Amino acid sequence: MRIFARYKKRIMSKISTQKAPKPVGLYPHARKVGNLLFLSGVGPRVAGSDATDSEVPGLKLDKNGNFIEFDFEAQCRSVFDNVKVILEASGSSWDQLVDVTVFLVNMKRDFHTYNRIYAEYFKENQPCRTTVEISSLPTPIAIELKCIATID
């Protein structure tokens, strides 16, 4: 059993970084398994912020949680930047992404903006992609990404 435990520790590891928003629950930013890297859901919150913070680029809420300001493009760029930070902290890179699952809270309003910005960020590397509309996310954000990348 000790040999298996040492082997398992070598091929599987948890990765967290203070350069990205804190996870909303008890999970790492990423997990390395062999030469694959699985990122937990990543949102646009500001690095170091936690779920109780309202530090979301392009979003301002009043005391009742109603939108005062909403800029989806700012959230989209921020989530891509957060993914990049986690990839780099994990020993991977943007060019090593192989699969991206995108969760949008409002497909009709936000998909065209998302698709345009996605094309800017993925000119060279074109991972597989799935985009899904969902009714809400655990914090007041409009987009979240779930990614798989390779790692050397």
Rank of each mutant, 00 (worst) to 15 (best):
K14G: 05
K108E: 15
V105Y: 03
V42I: 13
K63C: 06
P28K: 08
P23D: 06
F111C: 03
L39Q: 05
G41F: 01
L36D: 08
L137F: 04
R129M: 13
P127L: 01
L87F: 02
P57S: 05
G91H: 13
L36T: 07
K9E: 15
A5N: 15
A89F: 01
D62Y: 02
M12A: 11
S13C: 07
R109V: 11
D95W: 04
N115I: 07
L37E: 01
G91E: 07
D81G: 13
G41C: 05
Y118E: 07
K60N: 04
H112K: 12
L104H: 11
R45E: 02
G25H: 09
T130H: 03
H29L: 11
A30P: 03
P140G: 03
L59S: 00
V46H: 01
G43M: 02
A47P: 02
L87R: 08
K8P: 03
C76I: 09
E120T: 09
N64L: 08
P127Y: 01
T113I: 12
R116Y: 09
M12W: 05
R31K: 07
K32Y: 04
V100P: 06
G43R: 01
F38D: 00
R45L: 03
L37Q: 02
P140E: 06
A5S: 15
P44I: 01
N35G: 05
R129N: 00
P44N: 02
Q75P: 11
N115D: 13
K22V: 11
A89K: 06
V83P: 02
H29N: 05
P21N: 10
S90I: 14
F111V: 08
L87S: 05
T101P: 04
K108V: 09
D95V: 08
S93P: 10
A51M: 08
I117E: 08
Q126Y: 07
G43T: 02
E73G: 06
S135M: 13
S54G: 07
S93M: 12
F111L: 13
R10G: 11
G41N: 03
I86L: 13
M12N: 08
P44R: 01
C76S: 13
Q96E: 14
R129W: 00
E55S: 11
L137R: 05
V42D: 00
A74C: 10
L59F: 00
N115V: 06
P140F: 04
V24K: 02
S92Q: 05
K14P: 00
N106V: 10
I11E: 13
Y114H: 07
I86R: 06
E120S: 11
Q75F: 05
A47S: 04
G25A: 14
V56F: 00
V56M: 01
L104K: 06
R45P: 01
E133Q: 15
N35H: 07
F4D: 12
V100D: 11
F67Q: 06
V102R: 02
L61M: 11
Q18Y: 09
F67E: 08
M107W: 10
Y114R: 03
F103Y: 15
V100Y: 06
V56D: 00
A74T: 04
T130D: 07
V85L: 14
L87I: 09
N125K: 09
Y121F: 13
F103D: 12
F122A: 04
S16L: 11
I11R: 12
G41A: 11
V98H: 14
T113E: 10
P23S: 08
G41I: 02
F72L: 03
I134V: 15
V46N: 00
K22C: 09
K84V: 13
N82F: 12
A5W: 00
F80K: 12
G41D: 05
N125I: 09
